[in-house]
């Protein structure tokens, strides 16, 4: 068995001499100019193999043997029936085949982490957020939206009163929610459900609504979001994703951080809502039926919204574009009697 050549450093010294390392069944011997030392194998601390970096063998007395002949050292370990620690990870790192596989697996793993893993983690976490914090969040979000996107409502006091009365008629369905009127401006005809139960409805959307049933369809849809805690889950998911990304990419410069972390987070927020929208739609249909309104009210409202969306010249992905295909949504309640008939 050939010995491995390397440099030997005495404890607490930076000077080295050339030395040779040999393994026997239970012993390790080190031979240098004018000395031979014997060690027990399990006394040694051997560094894991990493690329072609020198292998370091630390002895209990603080001395060090360093060799660049990784292959010979590993062979020595194998021949004496020992395990080369870290050789598995080194095997993956040292060939392009495995690297490319990792490169492909990486986005797939991320995809599943974000689409399946995160929602599973986010649901109980979002559930654990106390009402007081959610209410506080609503105040923050409303003031944020007021400052940047929304304008004060231009509805007449009479119309607001009428809407408030209609809202009150929802009784226990509306428990824990409250209604706010705003002018949508850039958001257009829209309604938003916030984590703490605040529902914002825009003047533009109210203008489209002809029948009570349509108003209740909107409310029911937003109740669906609130009852299933969608907003809070979304917030937790997005926070989780940006934390994972910034942790993983933590070794980036701040510039790439900004670009790489910002974009996927926004995309993620959009794609999540599809499943949530379906749930909210289903909830809306159930509530309409229970309240004695035609589910066609839901369909007619969606139809109006999608028409309004088509005619608008804005290119930004609106709140609507994240809804499932409008046509399939319209079909959900089409078979029922016309919405104009009113309450049963």
């Amino acid at each position: 068995m050939e010995p491995v050549q390397g440099d030997f450093y005495k404890a607490e010294s930076s000077d080295s001499v050339t030395a040779y390392l040999r393994f026997t069944d239970d012993r390790v011997s080190l031979e240098g100019p004018g000395f031979t030392r014997l060690f027990e194998f399990n006394q040694l601390e051997i560094s894991d193999r990493l690329a072609s970096l020198p292998r370091r063998i630390h002895f209990p007395d603080g001395s060090l043997f360093s060799t660049r002949d990784n292959a010979a050292f590993d062979q020595l370990l194998v021949e004496t029936g020992r395990v080369s620690k870290g050789s598995l990870i080194n095997f993956f790192e040292s060939g392009w085949r495995w690297t490319i596989l990792a490169l492909i697996t990486l986005p797939v793993a991320l995809y599943f982490l974000f689409t399946i893993g995160m929602p599973i983690i986010a649901t109980p976490l979002a559930q654990a957020v106390p009402e007081s914090i959610k209410d506080r969040l609503d105040v923050e979000i409303v003031s944020f939206l007021d400052a940047r996107l929304l304008k004060p409502s231009e509805l007449s006091a009479e119309k607001k009163h009428q809407m408030d009365d209609a809202f009150d008629e929802l009784e226990w369905w509306a428990n824990g929610t409250s209604l706010e009127f705003r002018k949508g401006d850039a958001l257009g005809a829209n309604a938003l459900a916030l984590p703490g139960g605040t529902i914002i409805i825009t003047d533009e959307l109210l203008e489209m609504i002809e029948y009570d049933g349509e108003f209740y369809a909107v409310m029911a849809h937003e109740f669906g979001h609130i009852k299933s805690n969608h907003s809070m889950r979304n917030l937790v998911q997005v926070a989780g994703i940006s934390m994972v990304l910034s942790w993983m990419l933590g070794d980036l410069s701040l510039v790439t951080d900004m670009v790489l972390v910002g974009v996927p987070t926004i995309l993620q927020q959009l794609s999540y809502s599809r499943k949530f929208e379906n749930e909210a739609d289903q909830f809306a249909l159930i509530m309409l039926k229970h309240k004695g309104y035609s589910t066609a009210c839901f369909s007619s409202l969606i139809e109006k919204l999608s028409k309004a969306h088509e005619s608008s010249d804005s290119d930004i992905p609106s709140y609507l574009s994240s809804h499932p295909e409008s046509r399939s949504r319209i079909a959900l309640g089409k078979s029922d009697r016309s919405c104009s008939v009113g309450k049963e």
């Binding site: 990870i89 993956f92 495995w98 690297t99 990792a102 982490l113 994972v244």
Partner: peptide, 17 residues
């Protein structure tokens, strides 16, 4: 270094960090 970086990054993701 790229190979070391990407393999370790993947393992970090698979083990949730």
């Amino acid at each position: 270094y790229f190979r070391i970086w990407i393999v370790n990054m993947l393992l970090s993701i698979l083990t949730l960090g």
